[in-house]
């Protein structure tokens, strides 16, 4: 790891100030992605600005219509929250499938969404539930947030403050974990929301995406057989030593079927 300066932010404003006065500063949340990247010298920020002491970025609020999760809330806290379990059980389950217990104790929802790994789990929930990402500057709708491989709508120096998930009528998440890393080879969340049925896929493409054909079929009839014959095109899907694009396309249908059955 190359040398850097370490700063503790006391508030969101303080973090933004420290970020803008640094040469090439980066926010540090749980460090579960950033620190391994720095160890490999794939990232070499001049300054790290740690959000761990910004306490108002941590915590979960539930009202009648939505679950709002602070950016610095850990995967473990989302998974084990009785309120999340009651309001959106699929979201609690998803958080409990991320990595392993030690990763879940440190990794945060804000870090995961800022990073937007193609195989990350949270993007499926953000897309399927139609969540809103709140930053220091604005609110970004899920459908406008994911732009490509590790690419989001976030501007340079923009900070995620919280994520708001509308409570669905029902939802379920099914993940086919990559056997070594446990990231999603393919993950599908299916949700019946106030705005209709939404089906979102992670792991298969450069970033999370919806499957309109499946949404239509499930609107006509919400049953596993409605999606059983809907194949998505393998074109542009991820391909690596773990799975071909064709196999990932196939898994999308299988995981969607299972998610509908569970919802």
């Amino acid at each position: 790891m190359y040398q850097f300066e370490y700063h503790k932010a006391s508030s969101v404003d303080d973090a933004l100030k420290k970020l803008s006065s640094a040469d090439d500063g980066k926010i540090l949340a749980g460090g579960m992605t950033l620190l391994p990247t720095m160890k490999q010298r794939l990232a070499a920020p001049s300054d790290l600005i740690d959000l761990a002491g910004v306490y108002d970025l941590k915590g979960i609020k539930v009202d009648g219509a939505s679950v709002t999760i602070g950016a610095m809330t850990t995967h473990y806290d989302v998974h084990s929250s009785a309120e999340v379990q009651k309001a959106i059980p699929a979201l609690s389950k998803l958080a409990g499938l991320i990595g392993d217990p030690m990763v879940r104790h440190r990794g945060t929802i804000g870090g995961s969404l800022a990073n937007s790994d193609p195989s990350a789990d949270y993007p499926a929930a953000v897309m399927a539930l139609g969540a809103t990402i709140k930053t220091n500057a604005r609110e970004i709708a899920a459908d406008d947030y994911f732009k490509g491989l590790f690419e989001t709508a976030l501007e340079d120096g923009e900070l995620i403050v919280s994520v708001s998930f509308p409570i669905p009528k029902r939802a379920a998440y099914q993940k086919f974990p990559q056997p070594a890393s446990r990231y999603a080879m393919v993950g599908v969340m299916v949700a019946e929301t106030a705005d209709g049925i939404r089906v979102a896929v992670t792991g298969a493409g450069p970033c999370a995406f919806r499957v309109p054909d499946m949404e239509k079929a499930l609107t006509a009839k919400f049953a596993p057989e409605s999606v059983a014959d809907i194949k998505i095109s393998a074109e542009g899907l991820n391909e690596d030593i773990h799975a071909s694009a064709d196999y990932r396309a196939h898994l999308v249908t299988v995981m969607a079927k299972r998610a509908v059955a569970e919802a």
Partner: peptide, 21 residues
């Protein structure tokens, strides 16, 4: 996980944490 320690009562991987954290 060979580096697992408890920090404030929770298991964490100490190879992926800075001492200053």
């Amino acid at each position: 996980g060979a580096c697992t320690v408890h920090v404030n009562g929770q298991a964490m991987k100490s190879c992926t944490m800075l001492a200053v954290q």
